[in-house]
């Protein structure tokens, strides 16, 4: 799928961040077009999560800039990111274990009554509605999410990201805790959201899955971007060697 627009939905330019002495992200530039899935690949510690956390407002970059639809923006907090319709499914899921699914889904964006009190019944109803679509087996609506299985917790995190009409979706290893069946559901969901014109950053360790789901993949190693390739231009082996060797594949043309 060739993006037909010339302005990317997101552009991260020359982003760097260091923690103490560790250059977690080192002059990385990536972009994302509407209706496109861009995969981030790399070993553990390559800097993938850190890079997307800069976009989601969890970290502030030491240098570099972020453009949304061609306009330079400052994202200093998760609130700013949400303001730009950037939604994130964190690798750690970022759920409050003591709260139930509706409270987590609406955390920071509660539906309130005219008196300003939280409207739990409405939020519960909305949660049931979206869960019926995302994961029909989901039943434990009123229980603290600590009582849920890994897959169920994951679906709460996914529901939270897709409920609020994201334009830019970040998914950090969304299928890590899932079984085969649930993984297929996430893959279908990604296809559907893509058709709706969302831009998606997807992080996963499963190279084959990435080749199927993504339009382009970016490979990182030791905080640096090794390269970004269209999936139809490369083989799985090319990608693997980029991940392992940290070198762009040599190819004719």
């Amino acid at each position: 799928m060739t993006p037909d627009q010339t302005t990317p939905l997101v552009e991260m330019r020359d982003i760097s961040i260091a923690f103490g002495g560790v250059r977690a992200v080192d002059h990385v530039s990536i972009d994302l077009y509407p209706g496109e899935v861009v995969g981030l690949l790399g070993h553990n510690g390559a800097g993938k999560s850190t890079l997307i956390k800069i976009l989601s407002g969890a970290y502030r970059a030491d240098s570099g800039e972020i453009l949304i639809e061609g306009k330079k923006v400052t994202i200093n907090s998760p609130r700013d990111a949400r303001h730009h319709n950037i939604e994130t499914i964190y690798q750690t899921l970022a759920l409050a274990d003591n709260l139930d699914a509706p409270s987590n889904l609406f955390l920071g964006r509660e539906i309130v009554t005219p008196l300003g009190l939280v409207n739990d019944a409405k939020m519960e109803a909305e949660t049931r509605r979206i869960m019926a679509r995302l994961n029909p087996n989901f039943r434990k609506i009123k229980e603290p999410v600590s009582a849920l299985s890994g897959g169920q917790r994951q679906s709460v995190a996914i529901a939270r990201a897709v409920y609020f009409n994201a334009r830019i979706l970040i998914m950090d290893e969304p299928t890590a805790a899932l079984g085969v069946h649930e993984t297929k559901m996430v893959a279908d969901l990604i296809q559907e959201l893509k058709r709706q014109g969302l831009g998606i950053f997807l992080i996963s360790h499963d190279t084959r899955e990435m080749m199927e789901l993504c339009d382009r993949v970016s490979v990182m190693k030791n905080g640096r971007l090794i390269g970004t390739e269209r999936v139809e231009d490369v083989t799985e082996d090319d990608i693997l060697s980029m991940i392992i060797m940290g070198k762009k594949p040599e190819r004719a043309a």
């Binding site: 989601s56 969890a58 907090s77 998760p78 609130r79 949400r82 994130t88 964190y90 750690t92 899921l93 970022a94 759920l95 409050a96 274990d97 003591n98 709260l99 409270s103 987590n104 955390l107 920071g108 964006r109």
Partner: peptide, 16 residues
């Protein structure tokens, strides 16, 4: 208050 007590990082990432 309860979300922060349950998971301070999650609360922060939710914009609290």
């Amino acid at each position: 208050i309860f979300a922060t007590g349950g998971n301070p990082d999650a609360a922060e990432l939710s914009g609290i």
